[in-house]
Amino acid sequence: MGAIEVEKITKRFDGFTAVDAVSFVVESGEVFGLLGPNGAGKSTLIRMLTTLIPPSAGNARVSGFDIVHSAQEVRRSIGVIPQAMTSDLDLSLAENLIIFAKLYGVPRETRARRVKELLEAVELEQWTDKPVKFLSGGMRRRLEIARGLIHEPQVFFLDEPTTGLDPVSRVSVWEMLMKLKKERNLTILLTTHYMDEADKLCDRIAIVDHGKLVALDSPLKLKASIPGANILEVSFSPVPEGWLDTLKSLPDVARVTAVDHVFRVSSNNGPRTTVALVEAARGAGISLVSLSVQSTTLDDVFMHYTGRQLRDELQESAVYDPSFMYKK
């Protein structure tokens, strides 16, 4: 039995389908990422799994409990970090944790010990009695991670845990999560639109787009699943007629696309294709303006499966997600 089992779960808002018949299983102890732009349906999906919104169709089980019929059991077994930072700014770190310990029904005799342990685990023990309003964004996020673990849940949900944080804080939150996961054998489901975050943290990634699950596998396998192990970005001057076809005919080339005079060449052998490309340009009497060779990234994976680049979609799709609008 998986820690999270999702079967054809669907959510519709007034005729708009935010999540469309998504199915997957998250194994116990796994870190599972939902990767997609804002408005793809990630938050709606996580809200259904954490009992915050009821599904329109399909079903899901978390820790073996049905999210609709056994919602209270689901709530007892999960820890949730919502997208918005929801700690009480006027209360101290310890007070915030104690109040949530009570809300989760943690026995009185273990509350204080657990607060101390968790604040040590997220390296905030020196701030125990200070009001949360004095903490930086990254520290507040770490406090919320501690809050989500106060009742020792089996499954931990994080909705965009590093959105809005500076790069240093993001890395700090990642390290904290990996440490806690290792220590507590947690099953983690997180949503993100940062590819590096998904790549770094997740054992498996589900790419979600327009409410549908378009790909699901480990980061390595996802990268391997698309043609070309390397991406060459190259521009020429001038660009002769039929040059695209010439590039396609080079050795080990899997695919070529052109955007604004920049050619994007997917190659199964980057160095061989690079040499052939330089020779072809010299032979045709044209000069190379720029050339870069990269390994395949999750952005390439996303582009392959959805036909678009993830970063281009961030703002455009946000307005279509009613649950995102609720935040405003």
């Binding site: 954490t50 009992t51 915050l52 209270q72 709530r75 007892r76 999960i78 949730v80 919502p82 997208q83 918005a84 930072m85 929801t86 009480d88 949530f100 809300l103 989760y104 029904g105 809050r147 935040k327």
Partner: peptide, 11 residues
């Protein structure tokens, strides 16, 4: 501010 969301996920 989303504070209630924090309560709603508790039992």
């Amino acid at each position: 501010r989303g504070l209630h969301e924090g309560y709603l996920v508790t039992p």
